[in-house]
Design a protein around this nucleic acid. Structure first.
Length: 121
DNA sequence: ACGCTGACTATTA
DNA sequence: CTAATAGCCAGCG
């Protein structure tokens, strides 16, 4: 245990970053997850926005963070506009076997990967 | 210091 | 199903 995951007192939000990146990097190929799932796994369920914020800082990070595998709870690739070419995100997902239509993950529940259930600690 | 914005989600109508 | 509202918190003008 790192410390109390209190959302109001992230003494070192850096831990939050590390945790987010660690989880995202463990997403299996061809799977996707949501910001809320990661946030809930970290204990900051309500701070799902902070996950996206962490993702924004994930660019240029090594080892690389597969941020393209993280979408919102509807399966919509809301973060596509933050990639070099916005279409890169769905392109990467498509290359991993994830069907994308109208910037949205098809069969989202099927490709969904929940760290709290699959990773389990 | 104050208000607005944003890679979000859950609840309520 | 959609629309509006609240909660969340770092960053920026």
């Amino acid at each position: 245990m790192k410390k109390n995951p209190t959302p109001t007192i992230p003494e070192k939000h850096r831990d939050f970053f590390s945790d987010v990146y660690d989880v995202v990097r463990q997403i299996p190929k061809g799977r996707v997850t949501s910001y809320g799932a990661i946030a809930a796994f970290l204990g900051t369920r309500s701070s799902s926005r902070m996950v996206g914020w962490a993702m924004n800082a994930a660019h240029g990070r090594i080892p690389p963070v597969p941020a393209h595998r993280v979408v919102n709870r509807k399966g919509l690739l809301t973060g596509r506009m933050h990639f070099s070419p916005p279409e890169q995100m769905e392109q990467l997902l498509a290359a991993e076997g994830v069907e994308i239509k109208e910037h949205t993950v098809q069969h989202f529940d099927k490709h969904f990967w929940d760290p709290a259930k699959e990773l389990q600690l």
